[in-house]
Each structure stands twice: as structure tokens, then as C-alpha cells.
Nucleic acid binder design. Structure first.
Lengths: 147, 147
DNA sequence: GATTGACCTCAAGTTGACTTGAATTCGTAG
DNA sequence: CTACGAATTCAAGTCAACTTGAGGTCAATC
């Protein structure tokens, strides 16, 4: 089986080697072997990292991601838990869609104060109701992407 | 105009008073007056907080949120920027949908290793392509919601 | 066989978003 | 008027997720 050097994984994914080492350390991914000191990975580490990226986009903590898809790529969480997370995602998606629409509206609406615009109000009601109750996990830091 | 005490805002939104003070400090919201020492807010702070919640769900940094909808609720960002952010959200939504479908599939598929399941592979291709390239800002901490 | 350069380890530092704790100040109820 | 409780300030602490830096190791090239 072909093994990929950590440098190649980094080059292919754009994820810094330091991050890959960190992920290895916390058990999110695992290196298959060493070439001297160098970590070598099996090709499915790329799949793993894609899953990690998706999970991060969804706002999951790395720890959660590790529990959802274990190092092996095999899920560890009970099926019922997974369905619950999927349902939560549905709600998150609805909120994001509302935010997207709000942004588009704000970009186009020439009203001076959006708080008074009826369209704006409606969009808010769509998402705001439980957005105030439920909070997403969000932590740590990502390289300064410059907004 | 009716003013709301910080304690009531906290009770209504579920957001701790310490967090509201922090948001006030960084200019994400602003208190209208004081009753003795107590901060008093105008009712539209609730709208502001709903917007903040949406922005957080979308993975924006507080700083970005403040720039998108200034303290006044009036947007500060140029319209073109807003449209760009909306487009990014579209992509994020697509990724989340893929993750949701992946979760649902994993919860139902009895295959021993998902890495070999064709459905799983297809789902990954749907989202993975640029998920590996683009990274979402993600930082700070939220109360331990217990996964 | 010396040099190079990519990788290594390990400890410490950074960032964003809060939280916590101690000491203090009010307004209201008794 | 005193006591109470809820809110205040300010500094310091915490947490996840990385990054950085110093000093060391190795394999492949010159």
C-alpha cells in the first residue's frame, strides 16, 4: 500500500504540517508508519481530513468529530445520536439560509434603518426564534484569514 | 421608550449577564442608559442579539459581526462584501447538507467500513472537494453544552 | 563523509470568547 | 436607616485549537 509523506498531505490539503502533527497527537488522525522520523499516512487520511473539515464547518469540536468518525473512519457514536446531530444540522442550515437571505436583503435594500424595514423583520423572525436559545460550540483559533 | 434591564435581557435570551457586559464592552451591542449602575437596553437589543446568534452560527467572528451590522443595526460593510459573504454562506450550507446526509447515511448503513461503501464515497465527493481548501474561522469558547 | 533540508519533539505562547472572583455601589423593601 | 440582593468594575483565569521556537535527527544528495 502506498504511503504519503506528511509534507505531501500538507501540500495536497493545504493544512500545515504542524496541524497534522497536532491532529495526530490528539488521535483525530493516525500515522501508519515512520520513514526515519517522518510520519507516513495511508491515502484515506485525505478522506478523514475531508470529514474533519466538514465537521468543523458544522461547528463541532474536534473531540466530537473524533467520536463521530473514529480514527478508523468507523463511527463510534450510537445511531440515535447521529440522527440527533443530523437534525441539529437541519436547524443550523435553516438559520444559515435565513442569515444568507438577510445579508442579500441588506445588500439590496436602500432603507436607511433596517430595523424598521418589514422584510428585514420577517427574515429575523424566521431564524431568530430559537437562535437566541441554542448556541453553537465555537472555540480555538484559525489562521488569520483576513476578513 | 421602554428600557429593559440587563437582568431581563439575560432572562429572555438565556445569554449570561457577563456575556452581555462583554458584548457591550467590545461594542457589539450598546446600552442606552443606566439605572444607578445597572445597564438598560432598548428593546432592539433583542434583535441585535438574534443577529449575533445567526452570525455566530455561520462561523463569523464577533468582530466581523460587529462590522456587518454595526451597533446601530445599520450595516457598515460595502454591499459587494455582503454579497460575497452570502455566496460563501451558500457554499457552507451545501457542505452542511452533505455532512447531514453523510451522518444520516452512516446511521443507517450497516456496512462494516464506511470507507468502502460507495454511497459514503459519493457523499464525500460532494462536499470534500473544496472543504479541504477553505477553512472557517472558529475560535473562543462557549459554555460546556455537553455533547 | 559532510551538508542540506525536511521533519522531529517538547515547552511555551497566542487568539477569541468568555467566565470567575474579589471588592464595591446602588435602589428598594422592611 | 439598615440590610439585602442584584449589578458593577477590573484583573486574572480558562479553554480549544493551533502556532512558534529552540535544539535535535535523519535520508538522500554532493
Amino acid at each position: 500500500m502506498k504511503l504519503i509523506d506528511i509534507g505531501d498531505v500538507s501540500a495536497r490539503t493545504g493544512i500545515p504540517a504542524s496541524t497534522l502533527r497536532y491532529y495526530d497527537e490528539i488521535g483525530l488522525i493516525s500515522s501508519a508508519a515512520r520513514h526515519g522520523l517522518r510520519r507516513q499516512f495511508t491515502p484515506d487520511v485525505l478522506v478523514q481530513l475531508a470529514l474533519v473539515a466538514m465537521g468543523k464547518t458544522a461547528g463541532f469540536a474536534l473531540e466530537d468529530i473524533a467520536r463521530i468518525f473514529g480514527r478508523s473512519g468507523a463511527p463510534v457514536l450510537p445511531r440515535e445520536e447521529m440522527r440527533k446531530k443530523a437534525d441539529e444540522l437541519d436547524q443550523t442550515i435553516r438559520e444559515l439560509a435565513a442569515l444568507r437571505d438577510t445579508l442579500r436583503h441588506v445588500a439590496d435594500c436602500p432603507a436607511p434603518s433596517h430595523l424598521e424595514c418589514p422584510t428585514f423583520q420577517r427574515l429575523l423572525r424566521l431564524a431568530g426564534r430559537r437562535a437566541a436559545r441554542v448556541h453553537v460550540r465555537r472555540r480555538g483559533k484559525i489562521k488569520p484569514v483576513k476578513a
